[in-house]
Design a protein around this nucleic acid. Structure first.
Lengths: 183, 183
DNA sequence: GTCTATAAAAAGATAGAC
DNA sequence: GTCTATCTTTTTATAGAC
């Protein structure tokens, strides 16, 4: 799982990058092959079709979420703060996977939409014991969605309207006050 | 502004619908013409190129926002509650325009990204006097973004994870408590 | 495993008839 | 204003050499 630094992973990386930076339409087999440094034929050896490429991306997303949930559960500051803070990170393998799969979902790929819905449910299940009620859970999850939406709108690494550092600390504190379970 | 029930508007409506339901790649000149009930040549009479079509959509968005800001300012429940509640509406001309332009933005169209950023700034300017501080403003706007993100992920009219009715009332109340200016 | 060449379909756009 | 060709380029995929 960590041994093959093979062309396969490079192709998947290139696919992700193109989806994020230029959208689904720009992520053609040709462009992906070029970005990955292989020929179109070489690409098609690893992924027999565009559909196969997309399916592989969904599996990659699932693995990233597995790891994220493990970190979230054992987070020192607590799952809620971890969840809101890490929404703002970009460049993470998980963030890249989510952004890329979002592009597919918005291009009408049902499997991608389903995968994202599943991810959201897994997060909700993990957060639920740590917030006061359903409304508080909605609040936390919608804020995280909002951060992703904003990140999703910038194709390159442009200035983000998303809270950072001290601003993020203040936001996390406000959310903590508004959502903490009274125990 | 309300007189020409012309083919032009029908084309723009079809373009929006295709973008929302199937994504940017599916919104081809051919598909748009078909959905609008005109021929490709007929479409090209009104919009000389795909770029012209996209530019017209940005102008339509701007007009919808003008009207929304007017309603928001004179809202009885206050701008903050109005803003959060109306994020959840779909089918509105404004919502459709935002969703459609979001698709273009995520397809790498810089003008679309700029338009959405401008819309966000206009909303922020209107909300600012009605919240406690910058953190509270971030909270309100990110929640609204989150609602849009969720709506943006469902191509058709499928079940939405977004709060409705009583749930929305509870969420609006929680936000009001967390963000109200102390005056 | 990776390449080149090429076929088959679909994209945006032009020309010109009605 | 709206239509039917038609041209050019791009996209996915196949075939087969190395």
């Amino acid at each position: 799982m960590s041994r093959p630094p093979h062309a396969r992973e490079k192709v998947l990386d290139a696919f992700e990058s193109l989806l994020i930076a230029e959208g689904e339409r720009a992520a053609t087999m040709d462009a992906i092959a070029r970005a990955a440094g292989v020929s179109k034929g070489g690409l098609l050896y690893h992924f027999a079709s565009k559909e196969a490429l997309e399916a592989a991306l969904l599996i990659r997303l699932e693995k990233c979420v597995d790891e994220d949930l493990a970190r979230m559960t054992s987070s020192e500051e607590g799952p809620v703060a971890y969840y809101v803070r890490t929404s703002a990170m970009d460049g993470t393998a998980l963030d890249r996977a989510i952004l890329a799969v979002s592009r597919l979902a918005q291009a009408g790929r049902g499997a991608a939409s389903d995968a994202l819905r599943t991810v959201r449910e897994r997060w909700a299940d993990t957060l639920r014991p740590h917030v006061a009620d359903k409304t508080a859970l909605d609040l936390v999850m919608l804020i995280s969605d909002g951060v992703y939406y904003n990140n999703a709108l910038q194709h390159d690494g442009l200035a983000t309207p998303v809270p950072r550092d001290a601003e993020m600390d203040a936001l996390v504190q406000l959310i903590a006050q508004a959502t903490a379970p009274r125990d």
